[in-house]
Simulated assay, not measured.
Amino acid sequence: MRVAVAGGTGLVGRYVVEELESAGQEAVVLARSRGVDLLTGTGLDEAVEGVESVIDVSNLTTTSAKKSIAFFEPATHNLLRAGERAGVRHHVVLSVVGVDRVGLGYYKGKLRQEELVKDGPLPWTVLRATQLHEFAQQTLGQVPGPVAVVPRMRTQPVAAKEVAQHLVRLALAAPLGATTELAGPQIEQLVDMARRLLRAQGRSRLVLPVPLPGATGAAMRGDGQLPTGPHARGEQTFEAWLSEHTV
């Protein structure tokens, strides 16, 4: 099967490409470095020709709702239109657990992405995953310096490779026309994850826990980003990930 991977050069995307190729499928990477621009649609029609399924793991880093929507809305619209013209039979998109319960700006764009897919012309499946194990490092890298400001947050982190494996299984199967969830094996506190990561890396840095205000902060400190019902569960713990990715 010929499967297009939007964002195939990113963290999850690289694993998706590896999983597809290991399964004997043909992966077509949709990325600017491959001559495809999701925001303008440049090169998209040519790239998805003969594609049967699309896995969309395209992403950007922002806390702004405006910037998030400005990316996900046109990118998703262009992907769906190109997919319809090419006769794509299954559109799979990666989203986030709690995207509809936590009022983060970034999540506004993801919700818009989900809406477009669900109301769009292609058979679809949405996978909402919890934060990746790499999220602790991403949080620490947002503000350099001796003090790391880390929001108080409960999460059930999952391995990027396991997210990719799940996405590929979904893409190679029949469309669900539904949203499914994937989480890691254990609930963690983000502040604790950050401290353990720094210790594993041999780095000395003060971690300052900060509760975000309002309903958004309360949801992050509570169950807002945890699965609420039946869900698939990854196997790799954060501790096992630390052992694999740090010396």
Rank of each mutant, 00 (worst) to 15 (best):
R154Y: 12
P157Y: 04
P227H: 10
V191N: 06
V147P: 12
D37T: 03
P185M: 11
S33L: 03
A160H: 02
G83L: 07
Q137S: 15
R101N: 03
R89K: 15
T125P: 06
D100T: 13
V99W: 00
G41R: 03
R233P: 07
P230R: 14
G8R: 02
H91N: 11
R221A: 14
Q142R: 14
T246M: 10
A219C: 04
A27E: 01
L212E: 09
R81E: 15
F238T: 02
G13R: 00
A219Y: 09
G217K: 02
A173S: 15
L122E: 07
T237Q: 10
I187R: 14
E244M: 06
K110V: 13
R233V: 15
L198D: 09
T246K: 07
I187L: 01
V88W: 08
V126W: 03
Q113A: 11
G105P: 10
P123L: 12
L104C: 01
E19D: 14
Y15C: 04
T237C: 09
W124L: 04
V143W: 15
E21S: 13
G234S: 06
T61G: 05
K161V: 10
A194P: 00
K118H: 02
V16I: 12
E162V: 06
R2T: 15
G234I: 07
W124T: 06
P185W: 14
R32Y: 03
P157G: 11
V99I: 12
L104E: 07
S64G: 11
H231I: 08
G109P: 03
I69E: 09
L172W: 13
T76A: 11
L170K: 05
A219W: 08
S22Y: 00
V191E: 12
T40A: 13
E18W: 12
T9F: 02
K66S: 14
A160K: 00
T42H: 12
Q131A: 13
A171P: 03
P185D: 07
F71H: 08
K118C: 09
E21T: 14
L30P: 02
A171F: 13
V51H: 08
M193C: 08
D45Y: 04
K118Q: 15
H166N: 10
V102I: 14
A129Q: 07
V158L: 06
V29E: 02
G224H: 08
V88P: 01
R128D: 05
L226A: 09
G98E: 03
V99K: 02
S22A: 15
P227S: 13
E235T: 15
Q113P: 09
L94G: 07
Q236Y: 03
S64V: 13
L60K: 12
W124V: 05
A23H: 06
L197P: 06
E235R: 15
N59K: 05
E21M: 10
G50C: 08
P209N: 12
H91T: 06
A218M: 07
A159H: 11
H90W: 05
L116I: 12
F135N: 07
G177F: 11
L116M: 14
H90V: 09
V28N: 01
L212P: 09
G43R: 04
E46P: 00
L79C: 11
G8S: 05
H77G: 11
P121V: 09
P151W: 09
R112T: 10
R32C: 00
T9I: 06
G13F: 01
L132V: 05
R14C: 09
G177S: 11
G234L: 05
V207H: 04
L208S: 08
G120K: 08
